[in-house]
Design a protein around this nucleic acid. Structure first.
Length: 120
DNA sequence: CTTATGACTTTCA
DNA sequence: CTGAAAGCCATAA
């Protein structure tokens, strides 16, 4: 039997930590933000930051409404992908409404993690 | 089943 | 300090 470097049967296990990620994101209080690594660590995978991004990426529009994905940002306290589409603008707006100070710098939004990073 | 890529993070030089 | 590479799990082809 070869050692599977990558899990082909990803759907195996039943309890996908995807749902855990969603739960963590939903637990983020308003006016606070969390990083992918933080959510991943809380979800049980300290290095699963990418999965957090994927998890949010695969979320349906209706799920996005129930999930404060805008409170999830990268380690720099900045929005990833250099802003996908209008989503970044919406995120910044939502965060501002919650009281989070979002600085705009050359098309990128920066958030003060020292002040707004969600701490358990 | 294998290869490649991704809303990321951390470590080494 | 900056830059490059590896690591991680899952999805797509």
């Amino acid at each position: 039997m070869k050692k599977n470097s990558q899990r082909q049967l990803s759907t195996k296990g039943g309890d996908n930590f995807y749902h855990r990620i969603y739960g963590m994101v939903k637990v983020i209080p308003p006016g606070k933000v969390a990083t992918y690594g933080q959510i991943a660590a809380l979800a049980g995978s300290p290095r699963g930051a990418r999965m957090v991004g994927w998890a949010l990426h695969v979320l349906s529009d209706e799920q996005l409404v129930h999930t404060p994905w805008h409170r999830v940002i990268n380690r720099e306290g900045r929005i990833s992908t250099t802003c996908f589409e209008h989503t970044c603008d919406e995120q910044a707006l939502l965060l501002k409404k919650e009281g989070v100070i979002v600085r705009k710098s050359k098309g990128n939004y920066w958030i003060d993690l020292k002040q707004f990073q969600w701490k358990v």
